[in-house]
Design a protein around this nucleic acid. Structure first.
Length: 466
RNA sequence: GCCUCCGUAGCCAAGUCUGGUAAGGCAGCGGACUUUUAAUCCGAAGAUCGUGGGUUCGAAUCCCACCGGAGGUACCA
């Protein structure tokens, strides 16, 4: 079927509704518009037909009487899902439905496949994720969620730029995966004949940029981790990382809670959102509590880095927490926290003072030996951000890398590799710096009130069909 | 990776426990109807019951394997 190469529409459905909604029932506006979109519903009445056209902004009724609409029989034979260009007067029917009178019409694309049930839409999640192009047309919630995601990214950029942060792009291919503890995807560059890894975090490159004199940088980075899939994990996901020279973790906590409060207000109208049927108050400031205090609160057990490791191990046994024999006290305390505290933290909270053993890029706590100035932001039992005063001492960083190498050699697939160029960068001097990574997908889940990451990723990773 | 559940026409979906040869609706097709709102009404049609094997006179239904998905769990953000 021959279809036009373009169509000049004069307005969108939403603009049209806004401009003419006050029209009186059963009257014409005298205004002629051209609109385009997809036919979602049709009701034929013999000598008159009604349709519903949907574009990217909304739905509007089409009013097609025999005497007005050319090729009336063909118009009535259109299929649900066909793309149409419509020109005619804006009017309101006797029943008060704002409509466009179909005075001219053209098929912009005919659908060759039947559209899903006009009432039930698609319920099979498999079909929704594989054929997102259909889902977006028939599932309003899906459309809203992805619009929210887009606005969140846009608002985040604007907010950070207003604070003089500069957006940068760093490599996706890393010769040494770093910046997080995770299994990377591997690939190969033919011309250079080298192994490369898809980044698991942009962190180390961003801090190199601070060394280079970009004092406030951020990247909205797609990162890749070769791990299991779940309702909270997609192999590729989006992380906002930012670094601010001369700032410490306190500054970064303030910045994070302010950003998230701002996004909640802009996107939902209120800092108090509804999530999973419960109220969630994202207003700054968030509570700040050291990890060991939270463990005390939730288990009534005292833990410390100084206590005999056997005591920590037996506590793990008592709490039914699995551990490996090579775990040090810091890792054991982290395990206890993650199993007993994290899932039970509903209101936004900064968990502070992470053990040094599990924080190879964080700066030592200025007062508490063995701990770092690292925090995670937990909301609704989920970790959505992770930040710290950055480790700036190249010698200390080298020691921490060496510990990672030992872990790697003893079989830890997620240990960091030694990035000696990063250490060289630190040798040129990294000023005091605070940084953070925010899981954008999880933040979108919170603000859109959806329970699975597949509902905030347009094309989630799935097994190929067949 | 492991455990549990699910897979019936383009879409929604009954039937599976208690085996007897696939209900209904939407969409599509033919027809009626000049202000409908998931329009309604009449008619005809549309199904390798995820795939393969097994049990049985007989399998959508019971058993096994595989494929795909969901939830949970492990690793992790």
């Amino acid at each position: 079927m021959e279809t036009p190469y373009n169509f000049r529409k004069t307005t969108t459905v939403q603009e049209l509704i806004d401009a003419h909604n006050s029209l009186e029932d059963g009257t014409g506006s005298g205004t002629t518009v051209s609109i385009a979109g997809r036919m979602m519903l049709r009701r034929d009445q013999g000598k008159i037909a009604f349709g519903v056209l949907q574009d990217g902004t909304g739905r509007i009724q089409l009013f097609a009487p025999t005497k007005v609409t050319p090729d009336f029989e063909k118009f009535v034979a259109l299929n649900l899902g066909d793309w149409l260009g419509i020109t005619g007067e804006v009017m309101k029917t006797k029943r008060g439905e704002l409509s466009v009178k179909v005075e001219e019409w053209v098929v912009l694309a005919a659908t060759q496949r039947p559209f899903p049930d006009k009432w039930h839409g698609i319920s099979d999640p498999d079909t929704r994720y594989r054929q997102r192009y259909v889902d977006l047309w028939v599932t309003e919630e899906a459309r809203k969620t992805f619009v929210l995601r887009s606005r969140l990214l846009s608002l985040t950029r604007k907010w950070l730029e207003d604070k003089s942060f500069m957006e940068v792009e760093t490599p996706v291919f890393h010769p040494i995966p770093g910046g997080a503890l995770a299994k990377p995807f591997e690939t190969h560059h033919n011309a250079l004949d080298i192994e490369l890894y898809l980044r698991i975090a942009p962190e180390l490159y961003l801090k190199r940029l601070v060394v280079g004199g970009f004092e406030k940088v951020f990247e909205i980075a797609r990162v890749f981790r070769n791990e299991g899939l779940s309702s909270r994990h997609n192999p590729e996901f989006t992380m906002l990382e930012l670094y601010e020279a001369y700032a410490d973790w306190e500054d970064i906590m303030k910045l994070s809670e302010n950003l998230i409060e701002y996004l909640a207000i802009e996107l939902t109208g209120s800092p108090v959102v509804s999530f999973d049927g419960k109220e969630l108050n994202l207003s700054a400031p968030w509570k700040r509590t050291p990890m060991v205090e939270l463990i005390k609160e939730h288990t009534n057990e005292e833990v410390s880095l100084e206590m005999p490791i056997e005591d920590l191990q037996s506590l793990c046994n008592k709490l039914d927490i699995e551990f490996e024999s090579e775990y040090g006290p810091g890792k054991l305390i982290l395990e206890i926290y993650e199993k007993t505290v994290e899932p039970n933290l509903w209101d936004p909270c900064f968990v502070t003072e992470y053990p040094k053993e599990v924080s190879p890029l964080s700066r030592d706590h200025r007062a508490k030996p063995g701990f770092t100035e690292r925090f995670e932001g937990i909301v609704a039992g989920r970790e959505i951000l992770n930040g710290f005063s950055e480790l700036v001492d190249p010698n200390e960083q080298m020691d921490r890398f060496k510990e990672q190498i030992q872990k790697s050699e003893s079989g830890d697939e997620e240990a960091m590799g030694l990035d000696s160029d990063y250490v060289r960068a630190l040798e040129f001097g990294l000023p005091p710096t605070g940084g953070i990574g925010i899981g954008i997908d999880r933040l979108v889940m919170l603000l859109a009130d959806v329970q699975t990451i597949r509902d905030v990723v347009l094309f989630p990773t799935l097994r190929p069909e067949q």
